[in-house]
Design a protein around this nucleic acid. Structure first.
Lengths: 239, 239
DNA sequence: TCAAAAGTGTTAGTGCTACACCCATGA
DNA sequence: TCATGGGTGTAGCACTAACACTTTTGA
């Protein structure tokens, strides 16, 4: 048996949304050292008798006043590089969450300012993040991109009822491509249980009113939504 | 800031292989309490200055005498249920490894007997596993099944050089389906960089000699190998 | 009646399935 | 020359991509 080392375990959450036709990530400004004043993913230490996913939802609620309950949330992966935290050995279980376009979150009980930041600026390194949080965001975005293909995850970016264009915008923004509206419409309406028509229509400022949909029961999408060959994955992951 | 709880972190590895036309998993018999004498996944505590993946390879080498270096290995997910280990708070980072059909491993330095066990017996509950290791195996098998579709992972089950039938057997055994040999041949030979012909042939006891292949540089497979709609995933995961 | 957005129909192309057929070897 | 497994050709089907066309609204 090897030595049992006391390790601190945290959870960090990458919340993605679409705002202003951009993929954005929710960040908080750190109120304490290390990296005080730097932007970081919302997250924190897991409690004594707490499982990881509840911890992720709790931290999200505390730090960003985002309703952890209703959000799509899945475990991403765990980051355990020995020197990733200057305070000592801290292993973090990273989560991916998807939110619809919400009102700007305010700072949570920890009194840190929570705000949306375009993912592009994080990936480009224009906005610096604490710890290895940029790497975590890279993995999260990659996971989200993959899952749009073969799951119904895209609906998690939409409010409870949404139009076909809103759903299509999700694919276009997350993949950074443009999609033929006609073929897209056919594809998603013929997929079993992807969408459930509400029967309602939404009148836009101009143009024909769009039918409104709700997410259906399906969680996987077959055949998948193709986007051609996979772009390069971050550091050897194809998850 | 929340309370920092001292947590023990382990790695556990699900090594899958194909032996006797069955998907099998490598298990060790526990030499110490808790669960002494019960079968468990190879694994153990992560060291002070060690990252998780090296820890997984080290534990594998120590407990099963399997060469951790050459094996395909990827992080699966982390299990952090508060009561998963009777000794106290132990979070485990689970890994998935794929091995070709190797000579039966002997017990490693920890003097535990390491042996292959059909995955079916573990999933059915015929063979009991320590801790939540059965659940981990469920996730690992699900991941492996998914990845056969859209990556070249199947070659990791094969030795360095292999025949088309051996590769096809991988899909058949892991998915539990039968595959048309002719169409399979066409599919994998036309996929870019999936296989690299060695030019050699292997003479079987009977029948036409089969061409031998080595794995190519490709890691993803596009278009994917279809197996129809996804079967139900274990407990809410669609990873 | 025009602009804008929603939604339908049609055609060509690609990839898959199923299966007939040929090839190369040992017994 | 037969059994056995390796490998090719081809017809039909499912799905996709591209794009012309129709519908429905507000200005």
């Amino acid at each position: 048996m090897a030595t049992v080392t006391g390790v601190a375990v945290t959870v960090d959450v990458v919340v993605l949304t679409i705002r202003d036709d951009q993929l954005q990530v929710l960040l908080v400004e750190r109120g304490i050292e290390p990296f005080r004043g730097t932007l970081a993913l919302p997250g924190g230490f897991i409690r004594e008798h707490e499982d990881a996913e509840p911890a992720a939802r709790r931290e999200l609620a505390e730090e960003t006043a985002l309703d952890g309950g209703g959000l799509y949330l899945e475990q991403l992966r765990t980051f355990a590089a020995p020197e990733r935290d200057p305070r000592g050995r801290v292993v973090t279980i990273a989560y991916l969450a998807i939110a619809p376009d919400l009102p700007v979150p305010v700072g949570g009980s920890d009194a840190r300012a929570a705000r949306w930041q375009p993912v592009a600026s994080v990936l480009a390194g224009t906005v610096a993040l604490a710890f290895d949080h940029r790497e975590i965001v890279v993995h999260a975005v990659d996971r989200a991109r993959s899952k749009l293909e073969y799951t119904t995850l895209a609906t998690a970016f939409c409010p409870e009822v949404f139009t076909m264009s809103e759903l299509r915008r999700v694919y276009e923004v997350v993949w950074g491509v443009s999609i033929d509206a006609r073929n897209f419409h056919r594809k998603v309406t013929t997929a079993d249980d992807f969408l459930e028509p509400t029967g309602e229509r939404r009148v836009l400022s101009t143009g024909r009113p769009a039918a409104l949909y709700r997410r259906g029961a399906a969680r996987t999408l077959f055949p998948p939504m193709l986007r051609g060959a996979f772009p390069p994955a971050p550091s050897g992951t194809t998850t």
